[in-house]
């Protein structure tokens, strides 16, 4: 990662300044860490009984069960959201106007909704409408609907970013609309938007933690139950945070690499990527990766 914007080599004075700055910054960082450790110690957070539960297999099994529930919900929601999102994206580009309108309504409505409210609705509202399911499905449906609306926009952006010549060429070859879509447009669009799609899936994984609000026993809920039992909220919740950070960081690195490689490829290839288009991708990602 080459972050620095200082294009020119630093002179002797600049290097000295950076060196002094580094020392001061390092001292400050170490001071913060030292204060944190002292706080932990003063408040008895290093006491053995706070940490021991996390070393017991029976307790870890309780957490792993929660982790399994998290992944179970995330996996199902990912698959459903990708499929529904793809269909909605195609519907938004359909040639029949009412289909387009419906798809637009779907996207605008669910994208503008707080996921919290949506999951709450699945839990307390759906049964009232005669849909009675396991609490697992309420979470999965809420996550799927919300993310499908966002993924639909990502897919659509990908399709629209393709050169018109692609579909023209496909129809010149005698392909029908759906053939052109399936064989030419969609594969390219998906590949191009893959980084954005992955970062949205990372978001979805994070959002499964909203299961706590409907008392689905995912990782965070189990950590809360365990923390309340052992009185060690710091360790329990930190454990959950560390899990999410590790997995999501790995996935984000994967997405960034993918993006970098694609940028190289498109630069080398025939498709022009202008600065503005890159920004559009940044925008789409920023939007999709925060919810």
């Amino acid at each position: 990662m080459n972050d620095t914007i200082l294009a020119d080599e630093l002179g002797p004075r600049g290097r000295r300044r950076v060196f002094i700055g580094s020392i001061i910054a390092s001292i400050l960082v170490l001071a913060v860490i030292a204060i944190a450790i002292k706080r932990f110690n003063d408040n008895g957070q290093f006491a053995e009984e706070k940490w021991r539960p996390l070393t017991q297999w029976s307790v870890l099994k309780f957490y792993l069960g929660g982790l399994g529930n998290t992944l179970k919900a995330a996996g199902a929601a990912m698959v459903i959201a990708l499929i529904v999102g793809g269909l909605v994206a195609l519907a938004r580009l359909a040639r029949t106007a009412p289909v387009r309108w419906l798809a637009t309504l779907y996207v605008e409505f669910f994208r503008g909704m707080a996921l919290y409210l949506l999951i709450l609705f699945c839990w307390l509202g759906l049964p009232r409408l005669g849909v009675r399911l396991d609490v697992y499905w309420y979470l999965v449906i809420g996550l799927s609907v919300y993310n499908s609306a966002i993924l639909a926009e990502v897919f659509r952006a990908g399709i629209l970013s393709l050169d018109r010549g692609q579909s023209d060429a496909a129809s010149a070859l005698g392909m029908r609309y759906w053939q052109a879509m399936g064989l030419v447009i969609v594969p390219q669009a998906v590949r191009r938007m893959l980084p954005a799609i992955i970062s949205q899936l990372v978001t979805l994984l994070k959002d499964t933690s909203l299961g706590v609000l409907i008392f689905y026993e995912e990782l965070l809920r189990r950590a809360r139950l365990s923390a309340e039992f052992f009185h060690n909220p710091v360790m329990s919740v930190a454990l959950v945070a560390i899990f999410y950070i590790t997995v999501n960081y790995a996935l984000s690195v994967f997405a960034t690499r993918l993006e970098a490689r694609q940028r190289r490829r498109y630069k080398a290839g025939s498709i022009k990527v202008t600065g503005l288009e890159q920004l559009a991708v940044v925008g789409a990602q920023a939007e999709s990766s925060i919810t």
Binding site: G65, G68, N69, L71, K72, G75, A76, E217
Partner: peptide, 11 residues
């Protein structure tokens, strides 16, 4: 992810 999910039976 799906596989890990299936291994969960204690809950």
């Amino acid at each position: 992810m799906t596989a890990a999910a299936c291994g969960d039976s204690d809950d």
